[in-house]
Design a protein around this nucleic acid. Structure first.
Length: 894
RNA sequence: AGGGACGUAGCUCAGUGGGAGAGCGCCUGUCUGACGCACAGGAGGUCGGCGGUUCGAAACCGCCCGUCCCUACCA
């Protein structure tokens, strides 16, 4: 049990009888408030119980709940509610991310709509404006998570920019600097012109775009490029060192007539050049292309920047100065065409980098930025997974994880934004020194002169990378850290495996000396019914709030869990949700049935009757279901867990046991047997409710409150005990005994349906069980079988097949249904004959004749074997023919 | 270019060595005292193709065809 004391207050409403229909909204509003108020979500680091902790992937502060959040948080809530019911000391740590660039883009758009800019506002006012926006809209997603039923400890809500987490960020930066793992350097970076900031490699998304490949004459050589405008920044030509065609030019300086007069250009040999692409010659523009930058470094080439940070050609571009980069391309191509320098133009599919937030085409530019040295951190993160200290589920993601860590490049952490953690870096211009400090500095520590603070802020993932320990109080030494770190499980989508998961691994190992989580469960993406990625621009987003409104939160949660098969994306459709809404309805009505049949219920009396077979069966099935569900949950197989519970409740409990119980409840005259049945119904359904609670928290609570419970029972299903399995509760004998009985019931129903005998009409069925115990169970259950089949059942181990009867074989039992009085024999013969004639036509005259001979002359087993040898279609027709002939024989009394 | 997945009933998908399954849809019947958001019955599948391993393959291996995703500095 959790440490939470049961609330002495009575439940908010007297347990009135269940309404005709389940009203999700009402139950949701009622119970979430009760749970929260009673402190069931609250975690206590000093509480007893094995700790179980999940940190929420912090949603963006300006975000609102989309279907991906719904899936992610439903799965976390299932785990957390389950563990809580198991008696773990559970913390689900909530919070939000300031989401630097994303949030800044949103607020900038607002400003644009007001006709102003952040520059006009100034840094301080702008940041204030973002805070204000955060206060206004920041709580939206939290309210929506509550609507989803998320049982986070809201009193511990954290924000990546609150004072505690800011202290953690500052501490980490300073330590990494002191350890030499943070450095400043001038490299080529991805520059977003709109956001006016550098982006990390991960923040660049590539898109296929139609482009043109220009073949340009370069003196004696020619080369291909898609970016002629960068030509003005060329400082060399390069060829592959093994390319014999151009060997004679390597090391030479060529005179090249061009749009800006004749220029001199050296030819270098570099392995990065692919001799098979284009002409095998490239122009080297170190300032505007990552590959060229590398080549430039290797050969000591000048970095000649011709495009500015505003995306316009700069002074060095001569007559093109001031033009936008794409305008400049046009103009240069025109000019070169005029000079006869363009040899040809080919259409070309080009991958172009864009900003992951605003989709602007990224410009590679050289700039001074801050980096974290990743190699040493990455090695430990990979090793921790190789050693099994953190388990990644499903394992298909392992390769991806290793690949990235093994090929990692240094992480550019500075951003030219205003919203975020400002770098704790100060420059003393007088002595040219750099100071990194935990406390804000007012003057230079060495010369006491004035300081200038670095303008940049940190990449937003820098702070979220600390999330598993910063939220628990680090760098202070807190009881929360002691109890809950390493956390138990991280539940997240694969899209942030590198952005976030890998970085948490690195940071956690480095600063805590231990992995941040034992398990990482990576779930799929939710797509629309057509398998398309949901996006606002496509207009195919499913709004979880609308779904909850229409079908109820529990239906949405169960749907997501039931579809969360490992390694595959989820296609969400209304039909699917409707099906699980119906499941909730089924549960509701089963509960209504049980509760409305509790008249005179006395559990003590129940013990005076022996357990009948059906009860032993359903109890054993329940235990198996509990076992399977537990096993699936432990393996993060949410779909399997949901599936077995669904199957059990609907198709075993409702379809069989509940129907079976009606005989005792409605027609029985034995009070002890009646009490026994009532107890079984109550206990089995009550257990199922607890099993189902993590998936469907609201309806299970609403129903559970109405169930009769013993003294000292918990006040809420939330803190009730999750069902467990004891081996001795299994009853394989009962399950085995029920199998032939259920098979006979189905067989009789089947015959009735085939003979088109209305359900209202009683028929007779003679059951001939195989010798042994089965006969006894049939005698014991004959009344129930009769009720379920609406047939008069005669059980006779020595019965022979009567004339004019149909035969069915069900799990070793023979079932005979005499047709006399049920069927107009002549009419039925006519009908069958006509049907068989059609089958024979389909089969073909010759084949039909052969088939008839087979049936007459061969043993049944041989006939079936001969059918097997035929094609699919023939086989089916022959089987149809055979069955028809058999039935005709039966009608004829043979 | 490299890596990863997926192809099973009309649709969406479970199912990792011995019974081909679920939900929805479809057909037939049912005013059965929990539920028509239901009940009962049924039709429908050479498990993408070919080859191999195995006593036995939807599953394991190889190749091919088709779809998708991720990663990467071919200008």
């Amino acid at each position: 049990m959790t440490a939470v004391p049961d609330d002495p207050k009575p439940p908010p409403r007297p347990p009135a009888p269940l309404a005709d229909r389940y009203d999700p909204r009402q139950a949701e509003d009622t119970w979430y408030g009760v749970w929260e108020e009673r402190g069931y979500f609250r975690a206590d680091p000093f509480s007893k119980g094995k700790p179980y902790c999940i940190v929420i992937p912090p949603p963006n502060v300006t975000g609102s709940l989309h279907i991906g959040h719904a899936l992610n948080n439903t799965l976390q809530d299932i785990l957390v509610r389950w563990k809580r019911m198991e008696g773990f000391n559970v913390l689900w740590q909530p919070g939000m991310d300031h989401a630097g660039i994303a949030t800044q883009v949103v607020v900038e758009r607002q400003l644009a709509a007001e006709g102003t800019t952040r520059q006009a506002l100034g840094r301080e006012a702008f940041v204030q404006r973002v805070w204000k926006w955060k206060e206004e809209s920041g709580g939206t997603i939290i309210r929506q998570l509550k609507r989803l039923g998320a049982s986070c400890d809201w009193e511990r809500e954290r924000f990546t920019m609150d004072p505690g987490l800011s202290a953690a960020v500052r501490e980490v930066f300073v330590r990494l600097w002191e350890e030499g793992l943070i450095y400043q350097g001038e490299y080529i970076v991805n520059w977003c012109l709109r956001c006016q900031t550098v982006l990390s490699d991960l923040e660049v998304e590539y898109e296929e775009r139609a482009a043109e490949l220009y073949y340009i004459r370069y003196g004696p050589l020619s080369l291909a490029t898609v970016r002629p405008e960068t030509k003005l920044g060329d400082t060399a030509l390069a060829v592959n060192p093994k390319d014999r065609r151009y060997a004679k030019y390597v090391g030479k300086e060529l005179e090249i007539p061009s749009v800006d007069g004749t220029i001199r250009m050296k030819v270098v040999a570099d392995a990065a050049v692919d001799p098979k692409f284009g002409t095998g010659v490239i122009k080297v523009t170190p300032a505007h292309d990552p590959t060229d930058f590398e080549i430039g470094r290797r050969h000591g080439l000048e970095v000649r920047q011709v495009i500015g940070f505003d995306g316009k050609m700069n002074q060095r571009a001569g007559k093109y100065a001031g033009l936008d980069r794409f305008e400049a391309r046009q103009r240069i191509v025109e000019d070169m065409t005029g000079l006869g320098l363009i040899e040809k133009v080919e259409p070309y599919q080009h991958r172009v980098g864009t900003c992951y937030r605003c989709k602007t085409v990224v410009e590679p530019l050289v700039s001074k930025q801050w980096y974290v040295r990743m190699k040493p951190l990455a090695e430990r993160a990979a090793k921790a997974v190789r050693d099994g200290r953190t388990r990644i589920v499903p394992r298909t993601w392992l390769k991806t994880y290793y690949w990235w860590l093994d090929n990692i490049r240094d992480w550019c952490i500075s951003r030219q934004l205003w919203w975020g953690h400002r770098l704790p870096v100060w420059y003393c211009d007088a002595e040219g020194s750099i100071h990194v400090s935990r406390e804000d500095l007012a003057e230079c520590p060495s010369c006491h002169g004035p300081l200038r603070r670095d303008e940049d802020v940190l990449d937003t993932w820098f702070s979220s990378g600390l999330w598993p320990f910063s939220t628990l109080g680090w760098p202070r030494d807190t009881p929360e850290l002691k109890t809950f770190y390493p956390t138990s499980c991280l539940v997240t989508g694969f899209d942030i495996l590198f952005f976030w998961v890998a970085r948490m691994m690195m940071m956690g190992l480095h600063f805590m000396g231990e992995v941040p989580f034992r398990d990482v469960y990576i779930h799929a993406l939710v797509r629309d019914a057509e398998g398309q990625k949901m996006s606002k621009s496509k207009g195919n987003v499913v709004d979880p709030l609308e779904v909850m409104e229409r079908y109820g939160t529990d239906a949405l949660r169960f749907t997501l869990a039931a579809l969360a098969a490992q390694g595959r994306d989820i296609r969400l459709s209304n039909e699917r949700i409707e099906g699980y809404r119906n499941f909730a309805n089924k549960l509701w009505n089963a509960a209504r049935f049980v509760l409305s049949n509790l008249e005179g219920y006395r559990p003590a009396l129940a013990r005076k009757a022996p357990a009948p077979l059906a009860e032993r069966w359903i109890r054993s099935r329940l235990v198996r279901t509990v076992g399977a569900a537990r096993k699936s949950l432990a393996a993060y197989r949410f779909n399997d867990a949901a599936g077995v519970i669904y199957q059990f409740l609907w198709h075993e409990f409702c379809d069989w046991y509940l129907e079976w119980s009606k005989l005792t409840l409605y027609r029985g005259d034995d009070p002890a047997a009646r009490a026994r049945t009532q107890a079984a119904l109550v206990e089995v359904l009550e257990t199922t409710l607890r099993l189902l609670h993590p998936f469907m928290p609201f309806i299970t609570e609403e129903v559970w409150q109405r169930f009769p419970k013993g003294r000292g029972a918990p006040a809420s299903i939330m803190i009730a005990r999750f069902p467990r399995v004891r081996r001795r509760d299994l009853d394989p004998a009962a399950e085995a005994a029920m199998a032939p009985i259920m098979a006979v019931v189905s067989a009789v129903r089947n015959l009735r349906s085939e003979l088109q005998i209305p359900p209202s009409r009683t028929l007779t069925a003679i059951v001939r069980p195989p010798a042994g115990t089965v006969a006894a169970t049939f005698l014991e259950t004959a009344a129930a079988v009769a009720a379920l089949t609406r047939a008069e059942i005669q059980v006779d181990p020595a019965a022979t097949r009567p004339p004019h009867s149909l035969l069915a074989i069900a799990d070793g039992c023979e079932v005979y249904v005499p047709m006399e009085g049920l069927v107009d024999v002549e009419a039925e013969r006519g009908r069958l004959s006509r049907e068989l004639r059609r089958v024979e036509e389909d089969l073909g005259r010759t084949e039909a004749k052969l088939a008839r001979e087979d049936f007459r002359q061969r043993a049944p087993a041989e006939v079936v074997a001969r059918e097997e040898a035929k094609g699919v279609e023939q086989r089916a027709l022959r089987a149809k023919l055979r069955e028809g002939l058999e039935r005709l024989d039966a009608l004829a009394g043979r």
